[in-house]
């Protein structure tokens, strides 16, 4: 089951990647382009056979519309935080004295699944002054460019760094 879904996704991706060029989008190819379909199918099947075991353990959750809805809600939220993050870094870089106060702090996450943790770590890396260094169970080590106080308070760190993403990611991935 997992392998079939992975195969379909891979093949769809191949079709998008090999769309015919030109001024406008053409979804149907000329008949003589059949090798592209064949190569894509072979590669998709091989990928599914070899890497199906690494794929998500609940493939049916791909079909859950509520998760997709929350993912769509999450994108603008994430984009906004990312823009703020960049303006923040830009300010620090252009400031004559480079006002950084860096350190590695610990935070604690309630997310359970690996995918959700991976996305949390990625989101943290791309947003204000924080970068995930390591994940160990439910503890994340974060390099923070502007540590608040002395950075030993795990609860306060979690609130400042991860809380704004966790509520969305929990709805998308769990």
């Amino acid at each position: 089951m997992r392998r079939i879904i992975l195969c379909v996704l891979t093949y769809g991706f191949w079709l998008i990647l090999t769309l015919p060029g030109g001024d406008r989008l053409v979804w149907i190819r000329h008949v003589t382009d059949w090798p592209i379909y064949i190569v894509g199918a072979v590669v998709a099947i091989l990928a599914a056979v070899f890497f199906g075991g690494e794929f998500t353990h609940q493939p049916l959750s791909f079909l859950n519309p509520r998760r997709w809805l929350w993912a769509i809600v999450y994108i603008p939220v994430f984009m906004w935080h990312m823009l703020v993050a960049n303006l923040d870094v830009a300010f620090r870089v252009l400031h004559p004295r480079c006002p950084v106060n860096p350190g590695i702090v610990k935070i604690h996450t309630d997310l359970k699944t690996d995918v959700a943790k991976a996305f949390l770590a990625n989101s943290i890396t791309l947003t204000p002054g924080t970068m995930t260094v390591d994940v160990d169970g439910d503890t994340l080590y974060i390099h923070w460019i502007d540590v608040v106080k002395d950075g030993t308070d795990i609860e306060a760190n979690t609130k400042a760094i991860a809380a704004k993403f966790e509520k969305y990611l929990r709805r998308i991935f769990e």
Partner: peptide, 29 residues
């Protein structure tokens, strides 16, 4: 991009690249 940044930072910590002297805290180390 975030995955590569994560791998690089973890790798350099484990390799022993020291953090800047103004660093406040290093929980990982």
């Amino acid at each position: 991009a975030p995955v590569s940044a994560h791998a690089l930072s973890r790798g350099s910590l484990r390799f022993g690249a020291k953090m800047w002297k103004g660093t406040v805290i290093d929980s990982y180390g």
